[in-house]
Simulated assay, not measured.
Amino acid sequence: MNRMKVLVADDDPNVREILRIFFQSHQYDLLEAENGAEAVQLVELENPDIVILDVMMPVMDGFTACREILKKRDVPIIMLSAKGDEFDRVLGLELGADDYVTKPFSPRELMSRIKAIFRRMQRKSGNEEEIRTVYDFGELVIDPERREVVVNGEKCPFRPKEFDLLVHLAKSPGTVFSREQLLEQVWGYDFYGDIRTVDVHIKKLRERLADLRNGYIHTVWGVGYKFEAVTSDDAGD
Rank of each mutant, 00 (worst) to 15 (best):
I21V: 15
G36C: 07
F137H: 09
I114E: 08
V51D: 08
D194C: 13
L7N: 05
C156M: 15
E154Y: 03
P173E: 02
R208M: 06
M1R: 04
V186P: 10
M79W: 01
H201L: 14
R16V: 10
T133Q: 04
F22W: 08
A9L: 05
F163Y: 12
H168M: 00
R213Q: 05
I131Q: 15
Q122R: 14
M57V: 03
S232P: 11
F227V: 01
A39W: 01
K124P: 13
L45Y: 14
Y189K: 09
T219N: 05
K72H: 14
S81D: 05
R179C: 14
L169E: 12
I142F: 03
G153R: 05
L110F: 12
Y192C: 13
E86F: 10
M121C: 01
A37Y: 07
N127S: 00
R146L: 10
V151I: 14
P76T: 02
F22H: 06
F163Q: 10
F87R: 14
L140F: 02
G224Q: 08
L53T: 04
E94Y: 11
T197F: 07
R73H: 12
T64E: 13
P58C: 03
V220P: 04
I131K: 15
L95Q: 07
D164N: 07
K226N: 06
R196F: 03
G138M: 12
A37W: 05
S25N: 12
V150L: 01
R16A: 04
I77W: 07
R113I: 11
G193K: 06
R16L: 15
T175S: 04
E162L: 04
R89P: 02
I195H: 10
D99E: 15
E32F: 03
V176W: 00
T64S: 13
F63C: 05
V186K: 01
T219E: 05
P76H: 03
K72F: 09
Q24M: 00
D10Q: 01
I77R: 07
R123W: 06
M111N: 11
N214H: 14
E180S: 02
R206N: 04
K115H: 12
P160S: 10
C156Y: 11
A170F: 00
D237R: 13
V150Y: 12
Y216N: 05
N152Q: 14
G193L: 09
M79E: 02
E145W: 11
G36M: 07
T219V: 14
K103L: 11
G62C: 00
Y135N: 06
E46L: 09
V198C: 03
A116Y: 01
E68N: 03
P144Q: 07
G174N: 06
I69T: 07
P107V: 11
P76F: 02
R196H: 14
D85Q: 12
A9M: 04
K203T: 14
A39Q: 02
G188C: 08
M60S: 03
L7A: 05
E94F: 13
E128W: 12
L209W: 08
F163D: 02
R147K: 14
S25A: 06
R213F: 04
D98R: 13
D199H: 00
T175D: 05
D237N: 15
D85T: 08
D10M: 05
R108C: 04
L31S: 04
V90T: 09
G62K: 00
N35W: 07
